[in-house]
Design a protein around this nucleic acid. Structure first.
Lengths: 224, 224
DNA sequence: TTGAAATTCAAATTTAAGTTTGAATACAAT
DNA sequence: ATTGTATTCAAACTTAAATTTGAATTTCAA
């Protein structure tokens, strides 16, 4: 069979070196989006590279493989989000715990609002949490667990219950669950389940805070 | 190279026919567990067959392939769960809406409590919902959307607000979010984030109902 | 200007999964 | 007993994805 369009001796198009770091960053960005959309298993290096205008081999060259790229994405996502330090600082200040809760919820709402357009950071992390991959164990230990602990003390303070009280842990689920749900479901599904959902940050924050404070109060009263 | 252990003419061990349906059921059960644990992409037919004590070819023989097996699992999961009809019946009865909410939450808690050992049904479905696969579109339209609608009317009735009020949709997220969180995170993660979490069905139901009713009340008051 | 290192590319290789095949066996009906 | 159908199995096949390779190209410094 004769091969058409096969220029044997002709010059290849020039690769044009554009400083490596540029492709590396683009790769990281596309990977973030695609991993967030599809999860690790479904995402393919090919698609990531196409979106980043890079050759498939670039994944290996810059990150050592798909695994390495994924790890880099998780790290990046994590480093772009609220730092543990800032949470600790806020926790130690002496303002009203209810106000602290409002600030905390405000932060999360701001992130949730970004979802879809920009903001793949929280979505990759949520996905990763659900997928229970070995990579996650470390992230949980280093980042999630300490943050959860701070949040538990805050809740306990508001409820005027000891931190070890099971009601405190349960209430944490009540507060975080809705955000997890908003994060991991897409807009289309949200429309079907909860039409007219108003996601304006200010409105949403007010709603969540009001609901949470009332819930905490009621549960606290029932547990004393 | 000489092949050791290669009995050319010897008889193979007898396959032992055990009625086909048995392996089919076992396959379905193992598949349910493994798809629930790992999701479609990560789950391998090999592992499923090992757990079911079946040969890999059995997947194709009984279900036409991995896709077919997965579809069968979703169908099975769906058919084992609360039917839409029973929800509609409950919705029409004239008991106090708060009591209806309690019954509804009690049902979900019972399912959530099963998680891990038995009870992969809700988990596969949750996973599938989050994964946005084409298979899901139908299930959402036929099952989830109508159930969500019933729940919205119930919430609206409790809040004494019109069903179209955005606050009603937001509150739906508040009620369902925590359960979604309990469903899709594994026990290990739950322990790290919320230790001492008491998942006794009765306690959990009471907690969720108390929290929800107070939250609804507060938000309703703020929206009138 | 030359040479070394970094970067890009297309093509080849490897790997891991699903799928197909054909022989072997058990069971049930004739 | 004989035959046909359902079931099981190991091995072969296929496919899609990741990874490696080696040549080509640019950049930068000596």
């Amino acid at each position: 069979m004769k091969k058409l369009n096969h220029r044997k001796g002709g010059k290849r198009p020039p690769p044009a070196r554009q400083d490596g770091l540029a492709t590396k960053r683009q790769l990281l960005e596309s990977a973030g989006e695609i991993f967030a959309e599809q999860g690790y298993a479904r995402a393919t290096s090919k698609e990531i590279c196409e979106r980043a205008n890079a050759n498939i081999a670039a994944v290996n060259y810059h990150f050592g493989g798909k695994d390495g790229l994924y790890a880099a994405v998780l790290e990046e996502a994590h480093s772009r989000l609220v730092s543990l330090e800032s949470m600790q600082a806020a926790a130690q200040s002496r303002i009203d715990p209810r106000m602290k809760l409002r600030m905390f919820i405000g932060r999360i709402v701001a992130e949730v609002a970004k979802t879809e357009s920009a903001g793949w950071e929280l979505r990759v992390l949520s996905r990763e949490i659900l997928s229970r991959s070995p990579l996650m164990a470390g992230l949980i230990q280093n980042q999630i667990a300490p943050k959860a602990k701070l949040l538990r003390s805050l809740i306990a303070e508001i409820m005027q219950l000891p931190v070890e009280d099971p009601a405190v842990s349960r209430s944490l689920i009540n507060i975080m669950g809705p955000f997890l749900m908003l994060l991991i479901t897409d807009r289309a599904l949200q429309k079907q389940v909860a039409p007219k959902l108003d996601l304006d940050p200010q409105t949403l924050t007010d709603h969540m805070v009001t609901y949470a404070l009332a819930g905490l109060e009621a549960v606290a009263k029932a547990n004393r």
